[in-house]
Design a protein around this nucleic acid. Structure first.
Lengths: 197, 197
DNA sequence: TACATCAAGTTAACAGTGTTAAATTGACGT
DNA sequence: ACGTCAATTTAACACTGTTAACTTGATGTA
């Protein structure tokens, strides 16, 4: 039955179109401006159609969020294949996180409920976040084999440092050139990584 | 004319009531649930009355935000009076920031557009933020007199570290006890402050 | 060909949002 | 008793997320 296959394919395309349109509106006008009707208009459908693909706006945002975490995880895997040194690995992954936030701020925003993006589904309920966390925790462990609690503590520090600098840099975008912020970020991360050995 | 005085007073009371109600709803149901009509209901007025005190919801949120920054600034001043040692000062101010975020998460949220709070007025446009920044920058300068750029860089690092740990700790509230997070926060801030000399 | 079935998609509605213009109300001075 | 004026409310507009009810067109069957 090719009709079914074709239908399947078009279903997936429409679904992708919804996600793409949502991200597009968010990028151009901010998450506050993303509405089901606007998405429906953009993909030439009426609003209820969107609900055939996503049970609620919340779930749509959650999907986009997890997509973001998964994309980041892919970056991490790529880096893991290139470098063997744990220090280099952690440093490069940190840079990847920075680049991700700079290149796709709207995705980073929905991942952390920032700047008008608001998804009520708890972030940590997704396996995608746990996956990401584990990758980093493993690296930290790989050159500092310690107790689970110690690793978690170091991971918490790394995450806070990275996320904090990214969000404050975004906030100060107009007062402090992003390139300068990136330089400070690199230095801080380098210090943190050095401090691990 | 005492009538005018009394009217003035009641005007200020109503105004304060609006702010108080907004914060109250935010605390209990989140910023997403704060609506002009709900506020009006709570203070026994109709919705348009709110607009006699605040030209828009955005401006109301901005007011609450700046109130938060001013309150934090008062804490900083208090600490400045108690301690003379710059290291102690910066450490205690960091702790004050942590305590502020834990005690009044809804205020911290609106200050940084977190978790559904969304105010389109740029944060850095307010003198309150500049005031706060200067207080910290002065302290950093007071025991490391360097160029303006260096001070700004260190301030950016401190702010990122503090804000990052606060937001991530909030996020992991259910996975990682807040007391443990605070301990890590204290350690990290201590390290940062030590590293300044 | 005529009819029933069924899926795809639309319209219409509900309760809510921020915001504003118009209407109401009631107290005051003339 | 009448007009004025301030305080307050009602009604409206264009939105929002979401759902029930409806239309439409194609398909299979008698």
């Amino acid at each position: 039955m090719e009709t079914l296959e074709r239908k399947q394919r078009s279903r997936e395309q429409t679904r992708a179109g919804i996600v793409l349109t949502a991200k597009d509106i968010a990028r151009r006008e901010g998450w506050q401006a993303v509405s089901i009707r606007k998405i429906a208009d953009a993909i030439d459908y009426s609003a209820p159609i969107v609900y055939e693909y996503f049970d609620s706006k919340d779930i749509l945002l959650d999907e986009i969020r997890n997509e973001g975490f998964r994309q980041l995880k892919l970056e991490y895997e790529r880096i893991k294949k290139i470098y063997r040194d744990p220090e280099k690995r952690l440093f490069e992954m940190s840079i990847a996180q920075w680049q991700f936030a700079v290149d796709q701020p709207e995705i980073y925003q929905v991942m952390y409920n920032l700047n008008g993006a608001y998804c009520t589904i708890p972030v940590c309920n997704s396996g995608a976040v746990e996956d990401l966390s584990n990758t980093i925790r493993e690296i930290i462990f790989s050159f500092i084999p310690k107790s689970k609690e110690s690793i978690q503590k170091l991971y918490f520090e790394w995450w806070s440092l990275s996320h904090g600098m990214i969000t404050i840099a975004m906030m100060l975008r107009d007062q402090q050139p992003i390139d300068l912020s990136e330089q400070v970020y690199r230095d801080s991360i380098r210090r943190f990584v050095r401090g691990l050995r």
